[in-house]
């Protein structure tokens, strides 16, 4: 069953196309990721789906309800955690929770099972004002508040931005447990490494969706072998390889460069002969499985090239 349906949605702010003819479906119980940097259009899309913003073109529905006509009914069925912390800073943790429960006509007790895992971590701070919580705790409280009325669909806008690796990992584990309860989750993130935790992802850039697939498929669809190249002076080598005529693309990825070449057939030996020209010290070359970020960069370059062609 389709839970979230987006058809040809566009949103303009003046001349800027924040969302540009976007379409996708999310299945019920699916953990669906919108992956992209600031300005990709993720937040506008969330605001359209949560009935807080009207699209200029296109239609969208959540569990069969239209985001324009049925906005009241939708609001009772969804939970929304905006990117910016938007709970009441001068209410305590418990007061915030009670408030959100009350406005949805429920109580903390009624759906306690759903929030228990998360709530227990913030329970010791129940009487602390929300504004005095750390980033990680605020995030957990916001998630509790978004879940308090047992929503059918959960919209989470960049819940892990600015959060450290440990808290990010914990947050995704919480999402995995919520998914087991058949809640549909649409989550956005600028961190490409989080993409593989989703069932399917949409890679977004400049208002457009570049690809919608499972993370495995996106990686599988990468059209060329990718080689990791390591050396002592990595930045020096990067500068050389970027302008080498045999090289198609070369980007830094942590301790290695990720390299693709123009030639149709390649091997570690052929890569070696290209790189060896620059006599790098402690050279390491190995073929690797590309990452989501490799795919994102490739799709982004294709998008930019298309935009330039259209402009001419």
């Amino acid at each position: 069953m389709i839970s979230v349906s987006v058809k040809n949605i566009s949103k303009l702010y003046g001349a800027v196309k924040a969302v540009d003819d976007v379409s996708f479906n999310v299945q019920q119980g699916e953990l669906f990721g919108l992956i992209g940097p600031d300005g990709a259009g993720k937040t506008s899309l969330f605001r359209i789906l949560t009935t807080l913003l009207l699209a200029d073109h296109g239609t969208a529905s959540v569990n069969g309800l239209d985001v324009v006509k049925d906005y009241r009914a939708i609001r009772n069925k969804i939970g929304y955690m905006p990117g910016r912390f938007s709970l009441y800073q001068d209410l305590t943790v418990n007061e915030n929770l009670s408030f959100f429960a009350a406005i949805f006509g429920t109580s903390i007790e009624e759906n306690y099972a759903l929030i228990r895992d998360i709530y227990e971590q913030i329970k010791p701070f129940g009487n602390r004002r929300a504004g005095k919580l750390s980033g990680g705790m605020k995030q957990k409280l916001a998630l509790c508040c978004a879940l308090i009325h047992k929503p059918e669909v959960l919209f989470l806008d960049e819940p892990t931005t600015g959060v450290d690796v440990v808290s990010r990992k914990e947050f995704w584990e919480m999402l995995a447990r919520l998914k087991e309860q058949q809640i549909t989750i649409v989550v956005s993130t600028p961190y490409m490494d989080e993409a593989r935790r989703c069932d399917r992802i949409a890679l977004m850039q400049a208002g457009k969706i570049m690809s919608v697939e499972t993370p495995e498929r996106i990686i599988h669809n990468f059209p060329k072998p990718v080689y990791a190249v390591g050396a002592t002076d990595l930045y020096g080598l990067l500068k050389e390889l970027r302008v080498d005529p045999a090289v198609e693309s070369c980007y830094a990825f942590g301790e290695y460069l990720h390299l693709t070449v123009l030639a149709a057939t390649t091997s570690e030996q052929s890569i070696h002969s290209i790189v060896q020209k620059y006599q790098p010290k402690n050279l390491v070359i190995k073929e690797i499985t590309p990452t989501i970020e490799d795919s994102f960069i490739r799709l982004m370059n294709e998008q930019n090239a298309n935009a330039e062609n259209d402009g001419e």
Binding site: P190, E293, F296, M300
Partner: peptide, 20 residues
């Protein structure tokens, strides 16, 4: 202080070029 938060992967790398 977290200079590259939220930017796309290509711009993030161009930024590191500037750092180098």
């Amino acid at each position: 202080d977290e200079p590259t938060g939220g930017v796309d992967p290509i711009t993030r790398r161009q930024f590191w070029d500037m750092i180098y």
